[in-house]
């Protein structure tokens, strides 16, 4: 098991290295001048030349790659042109908001997707099954940004139940950070009013972000449950006289959970990508919004930084899922 885990960590490290090279290639192979890219569109020719020298962009590509990797290894992701602050610290500032959003969305997706999937598998072609089928199909097809706008219009503008956007009202002072997640910090600091506000603010973006994930989990879990319920060993469990509830909740579910878990990992990455859209719609101050506004300002370093951060986060989650897989499935544990 330890060797298994160690191997996974090495794979992640290797892929991160590859990703770093990939981002370097994107920057340098792309038509256009990387110095100009770094300098931004308003820079004069002199400024571009200065930057070219300063960043070593006049040296051969392999040397540049080496410098770039050395900087990355020391945690230097470069500087944002717009804010002139190091990208790493900015990502550190914005990441908790994104993480909080993704966590809540994942909780909604798994919390609703698993039970609904099981129930529709049990009552195939029943009323609930048809309902969940509509849900799971429209979930993938609904454009997140449009769905978000519709929810804003209805729940925030029309009904005025929920705030339109942001993480907290402007009047509210966020709790002093412990974890960086406002929902958690406000509880730890005993600021229950802040918690309520933060909860109301996160609801709409989390629902929008969770919807495709909910749909996917529901779908996979339903299909896997149906397959598991027909598996030979479940037939045998019935023949041995086990109670139907135990057969479903323990024997079939454990088998169906494995592919569902893989889907959760996949969807986690998908969610990280979609934060780019959802955070734009809801002005959610996370790394997605940071990447988008930087990209629109042709501020390239932050975009690369966010890409690397999202990649690292996604791979870490998938590594954890692989470990959970091995923990559930004894056949993998030995390997």
């Amino acid at each position: 098991m330890l060797r298994f885990a160690l191997g996974k960590v090495l794979t992640v490290a290797g892929t991160m290295l590859g990703l770093a090279v990939l981002t370097f290639l994107i920057t340098n192979v792309a038509p256009g001048d990387p110095a100009r890219l770094v300098a931004g569109p308003e820079a004069t020719a002199d400024m571009v030349e200065t930057i070219r020298r300063e960043y070593g962009l006049d040296r051969p590509l392999p040397v540049q790659l080496g410098l770039y990797l050395r900087d990355l290894a020391t945690g230097d992701l470069g500087q944002s042109i717009v804010t002139t602050r190091p990208v790493l610290s900015e990502i550190g500032r914005y990441f908790p908001a994104t993480f909080e959003l993704v966590l809540v969305a994942m909780a909604i997706g798994v919390g609703l997707g698993l039970p609904l999937g099981i129930l529709s598998a049990l009552k195939r072609d029943g009323a609930l099954d048809h309902l969940t089928r509509i849900l799971s199909i429209s979930g993938v097809a609904l454009p997140a940004f449009w769905f978000g706008i519709l929810l804003q219009l209805y729940f925030a503008v029309h009904l005025e139940w929920l705030p339109v956007s942001g993480r907290l009202p402007l009047s509210e002072v966020p709790p002093a950070p412990i974890t960086g997640l406002i929902l958690v910090d406000s509880l730890l600091r005993g600021q229950f009013e802040t918690f309520r506000e933060a909860f109301l603010h996160i609801l709409l973006p989390a629902i929008v972000l969770s919807f495709p994930c909910l749909a996917a989990i529901l779908r996979v879990n339903r299909a896997e449950m149906i397959e598991a319920l027909q598996a030979d060993h479940v037939v045998a469990a019935r023949a041995h006289g086990l109670a139907p509830f135990r057969i479903v909740a323990v024997y079939a579910l454990r088998n169906a959970l494995l592919p569902t878990l893989a889907m959760i990992g996949l969807r986690f990455g998908w969610m990280l990508g979609s934060t780019v859209l959802v955070e734009t719609v809801f002005d959610w101050p996370g790394i997605g919004l940071y990447a988008v506004s930087s990209a629109l300002a042709s501020d390239f370093k932050p975009v690369v930084g966010v890409t690397l951060a999202i990649g690292l986060c996604f791979m870490t989650v998938n590594m954890l899922i692989d470990l959970a897989y091995a923990w559930i499935d004894p056949r993998l544990r030995a390997a």
Binding site: D232, H233, R238, A239, H240, R254, I328, D329
Partner: peptide
């Protein structure tokens, strides 16, 4: 089922749940 009529199945690989120990499966029965 299991108490008055019991069944021995054909393929011992697929008719045992791969994710549970023998003791768990016997114990549940």
């Amino acid at each position: 089922r299991g108490v008055k009529i019991a069944m021995i199945f054909q393929d011992p690989m697929t008719y045992l749940n791969p994710l549970f120990t023998i003791g768990r499966q016997l114990g549940d029965a």
